[in-house]
Design a binder for these strands. Structure first.
Lengths: 158, 158
DNA sequence: GGTGAATCCTACCATTGCAGTATAATTTCT
DNA sequence: AGAAATTATACTGCAATGGTAGGATTCACC
Protein backbone atom coordinates (compact mmCIF):
# COMPACT_ATOMS: atom_id res chain seq x y z
CA UNK A 1 0.00 0.00 0.00
CA UNK A 2 1.17 3.46 -0.92
CA UNK A 3 4.36 2.06 -2.37
CA UNK A 4 6.46 3.82 -4.94
CA UNK A 5 7.36 1.55 -7.82
CA UNK A 6 10.92 0.46 -8.35
CA UNK A 7 10.74 1.85 -11.87
CA UNK A 8 10.31 5.35 -10.50
CA UNK A 9 13.08 4.88 -7.98
CA UNK A 10 15.39 3.74 -10.78
CA UNK A 11 14.36 6.60 -13.01
CA UNK A 12 15.07 9.07 -10.25
CA UNK A 13 18.41 7.49 -9.52
CA UNK A 14 19.29 7.66 -13.20
CA UNK A 15 18.30 11.29 -13.39
CA UNK A 16 20.33 12.04 -10.28
CA UNK A 17 23.34 10.33 -11.81
CA UNK A 18 22.88 12.38 -14.96
CA UNK A 19 22.63 15.49 -12.82
CA UNK A 20 25.86 14.66 -11.03
CA UNK A 21 27.52 14.40 -14.42
CA UNK A 22 25.59 17.20 -16.06
CA UNK A 23 27.43 18.79 -18.97
CA UNK A 24 27.93 18.47 -22.70
CA UNK A 25 29.23 14.90 -22.33
CA UNK A 26 27.10 11.85 -22.90
CA UNK A 27 26.66 9.17 -20.30
CA UNK A 28 25.95 5.65 -21.58
CA UNK A 29 23.29 3.68 -19.78
CA UNK A 30 25.85 1.08 -18.79
CA UNK A 31 27.70 3.59 -16.61
CA UNK A 32 24.51 4.75 -14.95
CA UNK A 33 23.57 1.16 -14.28
CA UNK A 34 26.92 0.43 -12.68
CA UNK A 35 27.03 3.58 -10.61
CA UNK A 36 23.50 3.18 -9.32
CA UNK A 37 23.21 -0.58 -9.16
CA UNK A 38 20.38 -0.90 -11.64
CA UNK A 39 19.87 -3.85 -14.02
CA UNK A 40 21.05 -2.48 -17.36
CA UNK A 41 18.33 -3.79 -19.65
CA UNK A 42 15.66 -2.62 -17.29
CA UNK A 43 17.23 0.80 -16.97
CA UNK A 44 17.34 1.18 -20.72
CA UNK A 45 13.58 0.91 -20.84
CA UNK A 46 13.12 3.60 -18.26
CA UNK A 47 15.62 5.86 -19.96
CA UNK A 48 13.67 5.43 -23.14
CA UNK A 49 10.55 6.62 -21.35
CA UNK A 50 12.39 9.63 -20.00
CA UNK A 51 13.68 10.34 -23.46
CA UNK A 52 10.29 10.17 -25.12
CA UNK A 53 9.02 12.59 -22.52
CA UNK A 54 11.79 15.02 -23.38
CA UNK A 55 13.52 14.95 -20.01
CA UNK A 56 16.72 13.41 -21.35
CA UNK A 57 18.45 13.64 -24.68
CA UNK A 58 19.93 10.48 -26.09
CA UNK A 59 22.41 9.62 -28.81
CA UNK A 60 22.71 6.24 -30.42
CA UNK A 61 25.73 4.38 -31.61
CA UNK A 62 29.28 4.28 -30.43
CA UNK A 63 30.13 7.22 -28.19
CA UNK A 64 26.45 7.72 -27.60
CA UNK A 65 24.59 7.98 -24.35
CA UNK A 66 22.24 10.24 -22.51
CA UNK A 67 22.25 13.60 -20.85
CA UNK A 68 19.69 15.75 -19.15
CA UNK A 69 17.74 17.94 -21.52
CA UNK A 70 17.63 20.81 -19.03
CA UNK A 71 19.54 22.07 -16.03
CA UNK A 72 18.91 19.82 -13.02
CA UNK A 73 17.78 22.76 -10.94
CA UNK A 74 14.86 23.30 -13.30
CA UNK A 75 13.65 19.72 -13.22
CA UNK A 76 11.22 18.88 -10.48
CA UNK A 77 10.83 15.40 -9.09
CA UNK A 78 7.16 15.63 -9.95
CA UNK A 79 8.04 15.76 -13.65
CA UNK A 80 9.99 12.54 -13.44
CA UNK A 81 7.26 10.88 -11.43
CA UNK A 82 4.56 12.00 -13.83
CA UNK A 83 6.50 10.68 -16.76
CA UNK A 84 7.07 7.31 -15.17
CA UNK A 85 3.67 6.76 -13.65
CA UNK A 86 1.24 8.93 -15.51
CA UNK A 87 -1.43 10.66 -13.47
CA UNK A 88 -1.50 9.01 -10.08
CA UNK A 89 -4.39 8.73 -7.68
CA UNK A 90 -4.09 7.31 -4.18
CA UNK A 91 -7.66 6.08 -4.60
CA UNK A 92 -9.41 5.24 -7.83
CA UNK A 93 -12.37 7.48 -7.05
CA UNK A 94 -10.14 10.50 -7.66
CA UNK A 95 -9.73 9.48 -11.26
CA UNK A 96 -12.24 11.68 -13.10
CA UNK A 97 -12.72 8.98 -15.73
CA UNK A 98 -13.56 6.34 -13.17
CA UNK A 99 -17.10 5.91 -11.96
CA UNK A 100 -17.00 2.53 -10.31
CA UNK A 101 -17.66 4.10 -6.91
CA UNK A 102 -21.37 3.92 -6.30
CA UNK A 103 -21.27 7.21 -4.41
CA UNK A 104 -19.16 8.79 -7.11
CA UNK A 105 -17.88 11.95 -5.52
CA UNK A 106 -20.53 12.17 -2.86
CA UNK A 107 -18.34 10.30 -0.44
CA UNK A 108 -16.82 11.85 2.65
CA UNK A 109 -13.62 9.92 2.13
CA UNK A 110 -12.80 11.59 -1.13
CA UNK A 111 -11.57 14.70 0.63
CA UNK A 112 -9.16 12.54 2.61
CA UNK A 113 -7.68 11.08 -0.55
CA UNK A 114 -7.45 14.55 -2.06
CA UNK A 115 -5.49 15.63 0.99
CA UNK A 116 -3.18 12.64 0.68
CA UNK A 117 -2.73 13.31 -2.98
CA UNK A 118 -1.79 16.95 -2.53
CA UNK A 119 0.51 16.18 0.36
CA UNK A 120 2.48 13.76 -1.79
CA UNK A 121 2.37 16.02 -4.80
CA UNK A 122 3.65 18.89 -2.72
CA UNK A 123 6.80 16.98 -1.80
CA UNK A 124 7.40 16.03 -5.41
CA UNK A 125 6.91 19.54 -6.68
CA UNK A 126 9.07 21.32 -4.18
CA UNK A 127 12.02 18.99 -4.69
CA UNK A 128 14.28 19.48 -7.69
CA UNK A 129 16.62 16.97 -9.24
CA UNK A 130 19.50 19.30 -8.37
CA UNK A 131 18.53 19.05 -4.72
CA UNK A 132 18.53 15.27 -4.93
CA UNK A 133 21.95 15.32 -6.55
CA UNK A 134 23.27 17.59 -3.82
CA UNK A 135 21.98 15.26 -1.14
CA UNK A 136 23.50 12.33 -2.93
CA UNK A 137 26.87 14.02 -3.08
CA UNK A 138 26.71 14.76 0.62
CA UNK A 139 25.69 11.26 1.63
CA UNK A 140 28.07 9.37 -0.62
CA UNK A 141 31.04 11.68 -1.07
CA UNK A 142 33.24 8.77 -2.10
CA UNK A 143 31.20 8.23 -5.21
CA UNK A 144 32.70 9.44 -8.45
CA UNK A 145 31.42 12.89 -9.30
CA UNK A 146 31.63 14.58 -12.63
CA UNK A 147 30.91 18.18 -11.81
CA UNK A 148 31.50 21.04 -14.29
CA UNK A 149 35.18 21.37 -13.34
CA UNK A 150 35.76 17.76 -14.37
CA UNK A 151 34.35 18.17 -17.82
CA UNK A 152 37.58 18.18 -19.79
CA UNK A 153 39.03 14.74 -19.62
CA UNK A 154 40.73 12.47 -22.12
CA UNK A 155 38.36 11.10 -24.73
CA UNK A 156 36.71 7.78 -24.03
CA UNK A 157 36.20 8.72 -20.43
CA UNK A 158 32.97 10.41 -21.42
CA UNK B 1 1.82 3.48 -7.70
CA UNK B 2 1.07 5.08 -4.37
CA UNK B 3 -2.34 3.50 -4.30
CA UNK B 4 -4.34 2.94 -1.18
CA UNK B 5 -5.69 -0.58 -0.97
CA UNK B 6 -9.38 -1.22 -1.25
CA UNK B 7 -9.26 -3.05 2.06
CA UNK B 8 -8.29 0.16 3.82
CA UNK B 9 -10.94 2.15 2.00
CA UNK B 10 -13.55 -0.39 3.05
CA UNK B 11 -12.31 -0.40 6.62
CA UNK B 12 -12.54 3.37 6.75
CA UNK B 13 -16.01 3.36 5.26
CA UNK B 14 -17.09 0.80 7.81
CA UNK B 15 -15.65 2.84 10.64
CA UNK B 16 -17.38 5.95 9.30
CA UNK B 17 -20.67 4.10 9.16
CA UNK B 18 -20.17 2.95 12.74
CA UNK B 19 -19.37 6.53 13.70
CA UNK B 20 -22.57 7.79 12.08
CA UNK B 21 -24.47 5.27 14.16
CA UNK B 22 -22.34 5.56 17.25
CA UNK B 23 -24.21 4.68 20.40
CA UNK B 24 -25.06 1.74 22.60
CA UNK B 25 -26.70 -0.13 19.74
CA UNK B 26 -24.98 -2.80 17.70
CA UNK B 27 -24.68 -2.63 13.97
CA UNK B 28 -24.52 -5.94 12.09
CA UNK B 29 -22.00 -6.19 9.28
CA UNK B 30 -24.79 -6.78 6.81
CA UNK B 31 -26.17 -3.28 7.40
CA UNK B 32 -22.75 -1.71 7.02
CA UNK B 33 -22.21 -3.61 3.82
CA UNK B 34 -25.52 -2.44 2.40
CA UNK B 35 -25.09 1.17 3.46
CA UNK B 36 -21.56 1.44 2.13
CA UNK B 37 -21.73 -0.90 -0.84
CA UNK B 38 -19.15 -3.38 0.38
CA UNK B 39 -19.15 -7.14 -0.34
CA UNK B 40 -20.35 -8.66 2.94
CA UNK B 41 -18.00 -11.58 3.31
CA UNK B 42 -15.06 -9.38 2.48
CA UNK B 43 -16.16 -6.74 4.95
CA UNK B 44 -16.47 -9.33 7.68
CA UNK B 45 -12.80 -10.09 7.36
CA UNK B 46 -11.81 -6.47 7.67
CA UNK B 47 -14.12 -5.95 10.63
CA UNK B 48 -12.45 -8.90 12.27
CA UNK B 49 -9.09 -7.20 11.85
CA UNK B 50 -10.44 -4.01 13.34
CA UNK B 51 -11.87 -6.00 16.20
CA UNK B 52 -8.63 -7.80 16.98
CA UNK B 53 -6.89 -4.45 17.04
CA UNK B 54 -9.39 -3.20 19.60
CA UNK B 55 -10.90 -0.48 17.46
CA UNK B 56 -14.35 -2.03 17.33
CA UNK B 57 -16.27 -4.18 19.75
CA UNK B 58 -18.24 -7.07 18.37
CA UNK B 59 -20.99 -9.34 19.60
CA UNK B 60 -21.82 -12.69 18.14
CA UNK B 61 -25.11 -14.40 17.70
CA UNK B 62 -28.58 -13.11 17.07
CA UNK B 63 -28.89 -9.40 17.82
CA UNK B 64 -25.14 -9.13 17.59
CA UNK B 65 -23.06 -6.73 15.57
CA UNK B 66 -20.32 -4.21 15.97
CA UNK B 67 -19.81 -0.84 17.50
CA UNK B 68 -16.87 1.50 17.85
CA UNK B 69 -14.81 0.85 20.94
CA UNK B 70 -14.18 4.55 21.48
CA UNK B 71 -15.70 7.88 20.62
CA UNK B 72 -15.16 8.65 16.91
CA UNK B 73 -13.53 11.95 17.75
CA UNK B 74 -10.73 10.11 19.52
CA UNK B 75 -9.98 7.71 16.68
CA UNK B 76 -7.48 8.94 14.14
CA UNK B 77 -7.46 7.73 10.57
CA UNK B 78 -3.83 6.74 11.10
CA UNK B 79 -4.93 4.13 13.64
CA UNK B 80 -7.25 2.50 11.15
CA UNK B 81 -4.62 2.60 8.44
CA UNK B 82 -1.96 1.14 10.70
CA UNK B 83 -4.24 -1.67 11.72
CA UNK B 84 -5.14 -2.53 8.14
CA UNK B 85 -1.73 -2.16 6.56
CA UNK B 86 0.84 -2.49 9.27
CA UNK B 87 3.84 -0.21 9.09
CA UNK B 88 3.89 1.28 5.63
CA UNK B 89 6.86 2.55 3.68
CA UNK B 90 6.59 4.33 0.34
CA UNK B 91 9.95 2.77 -0.54
CA UNK B 92 11.39 -0.45 0.80
CA UNK B 93 14.65 1.22 1.82
CA UNK B 94 12.79 2.95 4.64
CA UNK B 95 12.03 -0.39 6.20
CA UNK B 96 14.68 -0.71 8.93
CA UNK B 97 14.66 -4.49 8.56
CA UNK B 98 15.29 -4.32 4.83
CA UNK B 99 18.82 -4.13 3.52
CA UNK B 100 18.38 -5.02 -0.13
CA UNK B 101 19.42 -1.53 -1.19
CA UNK B 102 23.10 -1.67 -1.96
CA UNK B 103 23.56 1.86 -0.67
CA UNK B 104 21.55 1.06 2.42
CA UNK B 105 20.78 4.44 3.85
CA UNK B 106 23.58 6.28 2.11
CA UNK B 107 21.32 7.24 -0.72
CA UNK B 108 20.21 10.78 -1.45
CA UNK B 109 16.75 9.58 -2.36
CA UNK B 110 15.96 8.26 1.07
CA UNK B 111 15.26 11.73 2.37
CA UNK B 112 12.71 12.17 -0.40
CA UNK B 113 10.88 9.04 0.64
CA UNK B 114 11.01 10.11 4.26
CA UNK B 115 9.39 13.38 3.23
CA UNK B 116 6.69 11.54 1.31
CA UNK B 117 6.09 9.23 4.21
CA UNK B 118 5.69 12.02 6.75
CA UNK B 119 3.49 14.03 4.44
CA UNK B 120 1.08 11.12 4.12
CA UNK B 121 1.29 10.26 7.78
CA UNK B 122 0.54 13.83 8.67
CA UNK B 123 -2.76 13.73 6.83
CA UNK B 124 -3.74 10.47 8.48
CA UNK B 125 -2.86 11.67 11.94
CA UNK B 126 -4.61 15.00 11.79
CA UNK B 127 -7.87 13.51 10.53
CA UNK B 128 -10.25 11.85 12.95
CA UNK B 129 -12.99 9.40 12.19
CA UNK B 130 -15.47 11.91 13.54
CA UNK B 131 -14.31 14.42 10.95
CA UNK B 132 -14.82 11.84 8.21
CA UNK B 133 -18.30 11.12 9.48
CA UNK B 134 -19.12 14.81 9.53
CA UNK B 135 -17.96 15.20 5.94
CA UNK B 136 -19.96 12.19 4.94
CA UNK B 137 -23.09 13.63 6.52
CA UNK B 138 -22.55 16.88 4.66
CA UNK B 139 -21.93 15.29 1.32
CA UNK B 140 -24.69 12.74 1.43
CA UNK B 141 -27.39 14.28 3.59
CA UNK B 142 -29.96 11.98 2.06
CA UNK B 143 -28.22 8.96 3.50
CA UNK B 144 -29.72 7.46 6.62
CA UNK B 145 -28.07 8.92 9.69
CA UNK B 146 -28.30 7.64 13.20
CA UNK B 147 -26.69 10.33 15.30
CA UNK B 148 -27.60 10.84 18.95
CA UNK B 149 -29.84 13.82 18.28
CA UNK B 150 -31.58 11.97 15.48
CA UNK B 151 -32.42 8.96 17.54
CA UNK B 152 -35.98 10.01 18.21
CA UNK B 153 -37.58 10.85 14.97
CA UNK B 154 -40.64 9.63 13.16
CA UNK B 155 -39.79 6.47 11.33
CA UNK B 156 -38.86 6.95 7.68
CA UNK B 157 -37.91 10.59 8.14
CA UNK B 158 -34.41 9.89 6.91
C1' DG C 1 -33.44 -27.35 22.92
C1' DG C 2 -33.92 -26.03 18.22
C1' DT C 3 -33.56 -22.30 14.91
C1' DG C 4 -31.91 -18.45 12.80
C1' DA C 5 -28.84 -14.57 12.96
C1' DA C 6 -24.71 -13.14 13.53
C1' DT C 7 -19.37 -13.25 14.10
C1' DC C 8 -15.19 -15.90 13.34
C1' DC C 9 -11.70 -18.85 10.98
C1' DT C 10 -9.24 -20.67 7.18
C1' DA C 11 -8.58 -21.94 2.78
C1' DC C 12 -8.90 -21.01 -1.95
C1' DC C 13 -8.89 -18.58 -6.54
C1' DA C 14 -8.54 -15.29 -10.30
C1' DT C 15 -6.65 -11.19 -11.82
C1' DT C 16 -3.33 -7.73 -12.07
C1' DG C 17 0.78 -5.12 -11.74
C1' DC C 18 5.55 -5.25 -11.18
C1' DA C 19 10.43 -6.48 -11.85
C1' DG C 20 13.23 -8.34 -14.68
C1' DT C 21 14.95 -11.07 -18.85
C1' DA C 22 15.39 -12.02 -23.78
C1' DT C 23 15.85 -11.12 -28.61
C1' DA C 24 16.67 -8.52 -32.09
C1' DA C 25 16.64 -4.22 -34.93
C1' DT C 26 18.76 0.18 -35.69
C1' DT C 27 21.96 3.89 -35.45
C1' DT C 28 26.60 5.85 -35.19
C1' DC C 29 31.41 6.37 -34.55
C1' DT C 30 35.94 4.67 -35.74
C1' DA D 1 33.45 -4.06 -41.15
C1' DG D 2 32.72 -4.00 -36.39
C1' DA D 3 31.93 -2.42 -31.87
C1' DA D 4 29.04 0.34 -29.01
C1' DA D 5 25.15 2.20 -28.03
C1' DT D 6 19.88 3.18 -28.12
C1' DT D 7 15.27 1.43 -29.41
C1' DA D 8 11.40 -1.81 -29.73
C1' DT D 9 8.77 -5.58 -28.35
C1' DA D 10 7.65 -9.71 -26.29
C1' DC D 11 7.82 -12.76 -22.67
C1' DT D 12 8.10 -14.73 -17.79
C1' DG D 13 7.90 -15.41 -12.79
C1' DC D 14 6.20 -13.70 -8.64
C1' DA D 15 3.69 -11.56 -5.16
C1' DA D 16 -0.10 -8.68 -3.72
C1' DT D 17 -4.76 -7.71 -4.09
C1' DG D 18 -9.76 -8.35 -4.18
C1' DG D 19 -12.98 -11.39 -3.56
C1' DT D 20 -15.37 -16.07 -2.85
C1' DA D 21 -16.47 -20.32 -0.26
C1' DG D 22 -17.48 -23.42 3.44
C1' DG D 23 -18.05 -24.13 7.65
C1' DA D 24 -17.53 -23.54 12.80
C1' DT D 25 -19.02 -21.03 16.71
C1' DT D 26 -21.78 -18.10 19.56
C1' DC D 27 -25.98 -16.15 21.19
C1' DA D 28 -30.96 -14.52 21.69
C1' DC D 29 -35.44 -16.01 21.53
C1' DC D 30 -39.43 -18.94 21.06
Amino acid sequence: MLKVSQRTEYALRAVVELALRYGPGRVPAREIAEAQGIPLRFLEQQLSVLHKAGLVESFRGAGGGCRLARDPSTIRVSEVVDVMEGPFYPMYCLDPTDHTCFQDGRCGLQELWVDVHSAIRDVFERTTVAALALRHRRMAPDNPVWSPEDLFRPAGAN
